[in-house]
């Protein structure tokens, strides 16, 4: 049994169901990637794990504990951190203040965690007095991931972390995400850059119309001719 498990999720935003029995799981120290065509319900699946969606059916468990009915804020308290695709930093606040806000729920001294984040993203230490809104797209993503890391999460969820950044920055970000995984954190991400993401993934899920179409390790999916032809472009 994996650390975070979503089983047979069904539900949507009120109208028709977007998720039609989709199941996901990720363990600590593992990267799981959700890929699939536009409108497949990738981001919606992630929102369901975070509690931002009304589920009709299905359960979400974290470390064996049923969290299906918990509010997003309570799940944050349970150790799930989420990096949204857009609007994921406090633009009018400095990099350091962004990180402090990430640690808002913590009552202990978080200076050590902040040092870890600065070790992970050295550029942020240089720019810590600058407003996050003035940074480049790639740096802003680093702030967003750093803010999420400040809660010392057990699960880190990323919604298209490399959307709109250059290929070099994307490689760099993926390297950092691998480092996050080595800290024993479960990483779950939705990615448009499917091939690159599956390269670093331990587990991949191909979603189509809200259901699992293909599941396997990153390498298996990359080697699967059907997946290659239909989702990875040859």
């Amino acid at each position: 049994m994996s650390y975070l498990v979503a089983d047979q999720l069904r539900g949507g935003y009120g109208g028709a169901d977007i998720l039609n029995g989709c199941s996901l799981s990720v363990d600590k120290g593992e990267i799981a990637v959700i890929v699939g065509p536009n409108g497949a319900g990738k981001s919606t699946a992630m929102k369901a794990l975070l509690g931002m969606l009304n589920l009709r059916e299905g359960t979400v468990t974290l470390g064996g504990k049923d969290i299906t009915q918990m509010s997003p804020q309570d799940r944050v308290g349970e150790g799930i951190a989420f990096v949204p695709q857009t609007h994921n930093v406090f633009g009018g606040m400095t990099v350091e203040e962004n990180l402090e806000m990430g640690a808002f729920l913590r009552t202990d001294d978080f200076a050590g965690t902040m040092e870890q984040v600065y070790d992970l993203f050295p550029i942020l230490k240089q720019k810590r007095r600058q407003n996050a809104g003035e940074l480049s797209g790639g740096q802003r993503q680093q702030v967003a991931v750093g803010r999420a890391m400040m809660t010392q999460p057990s699960v880190l969820m990323l919604d298209e972390p490399t959307a709109g950044v250059s290929p070099i920055v994307m490689d760099e970000l993926f390297d950092r995400i691998l480092e996050v995984k080595q800290q024993g954190i479960a990483v779950l991400m939705v990615e448009q850059n499917a091939a690159q993401a599956l390269n670093i993934a331990d587990k991949g899920y191909v979603l189509v119309t809200g259901t699992n179409k293909h599941t396997g390790s990153g390498d298996e999916l990359l080697a699967d001719p059907v997946v290659r032809r239909t989702f990875l472009g040859g």
Binding site: P84, F90, G92, M93, E97, E100, M101, F104
Partner: peptide, 21 residues
């Protein structure tokens, strides 16, 4: 801390909620 949380809330409400504010 409280003052910063108030600024964070006005800056980006959803992200503030995600941070547990």
């Amino acid at each position: 801390r409280t003052g910063k949380a108030m600024r964070a809330f006005s800056d980006n409400k959803d992200l503030a909620l995600l941070s547990g504010i």
